[in-house]
Design a binder for these strands. Structure first.
Lengths: 122, 122
DNA sequence: ATCGTAGTACGACTATTGTCAAACTATGAG
DNA sequence: CTCATAGTTTGACAATAGTCGTACTACGAT
């Protein structure tokens, strides 16, 4: 189980939109969903490069795939394969370049909400 | 036509959500539409307290009403009647209090986009 | 009182979205 | 090779959202 032995990065390549082509409405729309917002929050909260399965989302596998795809196609996350796992990371720098301050304010607001209602799952 | 003579502010009162109850997802969802984004932008661009009709939106009257309602119920704008006209203003302070930096970054991003594509109506 | 203007309400229609289950693919482990 | 794991794809479904036209209400002007 040596770390590098499990890395494959094979065929399965994933399309990501270029930073310059990210659209504001698409990004806002992608963030306007509780499940996706919780994913983004988890990634920002030090859980960078988590496998999809590790999020324990309250939805089925296929729905989860769907949400990750929406986030990826909006340009919010970047995904790559490591073995069978698909890891995701926030495109913080790209987002900051294209929409300065946006991600930070969204994360800040969402964290505030979570302090108010720590039990609320959504 | 003395200014104050046309002000009525009569029956027709409008419901606005309290600042403390504004929900992030709702706000993001409301902003994730080209028509509504253009309304918000126009209001921010010094056209505060415009009547709905003055926006010249590329949609029908009833659709326009719909979009203004979405913005109002999300807590992004405040509306009040002046005669038959319904004027709208951005709730900048409320939004800043609840979601610091959010509106500013969205407006900034949208303005940037408009400089890139000045002809693009959406 | 009548008319025009500004906006709302309602119903209909279409497109999009969030959801799931089932079948499938790719990879690593044994 | 075979099996389990992680994720994708497809098709279906219900709910939501954006759109419109028509009918309606409220107000100001004449």
């Amino acid at each position: 189980m040596s770390e590098s032995a499990t890395v494959t990065v094979s065929g399965r390549r994933v399309k990501h939109p270029e930073t310059a082509r990210l659209r504001l409405e698409t990004v806002l729309g992608a963030l306007a969903d509780p499940v996706r917002l919780s994913i983004v929050c988890a990634l920002a909260d030090g859980h960078e490069d988590m496998a999809c399965v590790a999020f324990e989302l309250p939805v089925s596998k296929s729905t989860s795939t769907h949400h990750f795809r929406v986030l990826r196609e909006a340009g919010i996350i970047r995904q790559y394969y490591v073995g069978t796992a698909r890891k995701s990371g926030l495109r913080v720098d790209d987002l900051e370049e294209r929409f300065p301050g946006l991600l930070a304010s969204v994360l800040n607001a969402e964290r505030g909400r979570r302090e108010e209602h720590p039990d609320d799952p959504a």
